[in-house]
């Protein structure tokens, strides 16, 4: 009994301490820094001020935010439309093929996403493989400008975040009893009606979870924008990074971070509320 209690205290204590030191403290530091003033030599000066937050409302920065939100939204929608059929196929196919497809989704995790972003860069470059193949096939005469466009950034985000859409969708689709689709068909529903009235409502938790798991990281992946967008299509992540590393304006970067966190927290709250609502309809 006592030994178990000691083990419990130790594991929980260690985890708590870890989270405290490496998550809670830095977050609090960011929060505090966001209310301080900028200092050329020591990064921050110890005097309270809310000017960083006031500066965020500037249209220039609001533009960065809204553009980044838009890019994340586009990436999320594309991921959803590509990921849903893929997840559906994966959940409904025979087990052998299912494991193979699952492996395809998981393999990219074995390589760091930064490295993979560099790989995409070489694919899309002016003398990259995509352009060379297109020229070779005589589809185009001169290399297309693919790299350093908004499209390239979106493609990069979709590529890196695709598994985060597929996996939650796969998890919910796999659990749906096949006889429900048969019942719908038996009762006269065509494929489209069965999909709209049965499949979509039953997979809604997966759709929401997958969308959040794509949308939230898509706001912050600054290296994707750096490498593929040539820093033209700024994400919120780029903006924050620039404030800390280039402009050396820690309070302003911290304020942007806090604003970001609040936005994400709000979306998580919305997610849990919707899950609970759907859950209530289905279970409770």
């Amino acid at each position: 009994m006592k030994k178990q209690n000691l083990f419990k205290t130790l594991t929980i204590g260690l985890t708590g301490a870890w989270l405290g030191v490496f998550v809670f403290l830095p977050t609090m530091m960011i929060l505090i820094a966001s209310f301080l003033e900028r200092d050329e030599t020591d990064f921050v000066r110890m005097s309270f001020s809310a000017t960083s937050y006031a500066r965020l409302i500037d249209p220039v920065y609001l533009n960065v935010f809204s553009h980044s939100l838009f890019m994340a939204l586009v990436a999320t929608v594309i991921c959803l439309f590509l990921g849903y059929p893929f997840a559906y196929l994966m959940a409904r196919t025979r087990p052998g093929l299912r494991h193979f497809l699952l492996l395809l989704v998981i393999i990219p995790f074995w390589t760091n996403s930064l490295i993979r972003t560099y790989a995409i860069r070489t694919l899309l470059a002016a003398n990259g493989i995509v352009n060379q193949v297109l020229i070779h096939l005589k589809v185009i005469d001169a290399p297309l400008q693919i790299l350093f466009t908004g499209g390239a950034v979106t493609a990069g985000l979709v590529y890196i975040l695709f598994p985060f859409m597929v996996l939650p969708l796969f998890a919910v689709i796999e659990k749906i009893d096949v006889s429900l689709f048969e019942a719908a068909s038996d009762l006269g529903a065509g494929r489209l009606q069965a999909f709209v009235r049965i499949t979509v409502p039953l997979t809604m938790p997966g759709i929401i979870a997958g969308s959040l798991m794509v949308f939230l990281p898509a706001l912050g992946m600054f290296y994707v924008s750096d490498l593929l967008g040539g820093a033209k299509d700024l994400l919120v992540g780029n903006f924050i990074r620039n404030q800390f590393l280039d402009a050396r304006d820690w309070p302003f970067g911290a304020a942007a971070s806090v604003a970001m966190m609040i936005l994400m927290a709000l979306m998580m709250v919305a997610y849990f509320i919707s899950i609970r609502k759907i859950g209530k309809e289905q279970i409770g």
């Binding site: 009893d177 006889s179 429900l180 019942a183 009762l187 759907i278 289905q282």
Partner: peptide, 14 residues
């Protein structure tokens, strides 16, 4: 014009 009562009932849970 055939309807089935499934072994698992297959009622739509939502």
């Amino acid at each position: 014009h055939v309807n089935m009562v499934f072994q698992s009932f297959a009622l739509f849970p939502h």
